[in-house]
Amino acid sequence: MRIAVLSGKGGTGKTFVSVNLAVTAKNAVYIDCDVEEPNGRLFFKPQNIKEDEVHTLLPRLFEEKCIGCRKCVDLCRFNALSLIKNKPIVFQEVCHSCGACSLVCPTGAIYEVERPIGVVESGFYGTVQVVTGILNVGEASGVPVIRNALKAENAEKKTMIIDCPPGSACTVMESVQTADYCVLVVEATAFGLHNFKMVYELVTLLKKPCGIVINKGDHVYAQLESFCKENNIPVLCRIPYKEKLARIGARAGIACEEDEETGEQFLALLEKIKGEVEK
């Protein structure tokens, strides 16, 4: 079972929900796809870490083979190549590593080299495998790192918790692509609802079943409730605001292990998700 946790708005509690779900499931793989700012590892402090470098491909030129035919420049849909004095030059930040230029080159003048853009770390917190995608600072796209992090496939059919990046851009689509179910963490505010609608549209478009967790949901926000009702979105769980939880979070503790009520809540949440997936 692959569960993706996403939110639209940053800071609603994706990592909080993901970490606690993984710990509750025990036999789980937690994958941090928020590669620009992965912070699940701050809570897990995983042991026995193994690192794998992530590369992307970049075209290079055998100048003596190039006949200046311009096919590569004209084909590149990202406009990452230009032809100056009959030789192509490559703009590496614009290149999407699709490889089309090397395929179309009639003389084999273009070859591809690997360029490191980040790492995927894998370690353990008890029985929970903790996988963290980390994008190098200044890199434009985290998609290749996410793709590699998600490859941490498990043969034992463990529960997989995918902690997604905020927003609803390419990185989020990549993160939820293989998910069986999406948990949308929502904040009961106007801003929270606005961004929730965007991710809800995204998961609907990708035809993923989903349910919501309302974080700091002590009070009823009528617009959110009616939106969920109208669209038949199940409210899986409401986590009330508690100073105790904030304190646990601030020192990077794991709430379901330290607070009994929260522990029970996550157990119930995990069961509900399993039920929804089986539907």
Binding site: V73, C76, F78, N79, A80, S82, L83, I84, F91, V94
Partner: peptide, 18 residues
């Protein structure tokens, strides 16, 4: 030719100038 390009418009436009 780059007026409506999705990305890399500056590069493509500069190519037209070249």
């Amino acid at each position: 030719p780059a007026a409506a390009a999705q990305g890399g418009a500056g590069i493509k436009a500069a190519q037209a100038i070249v």
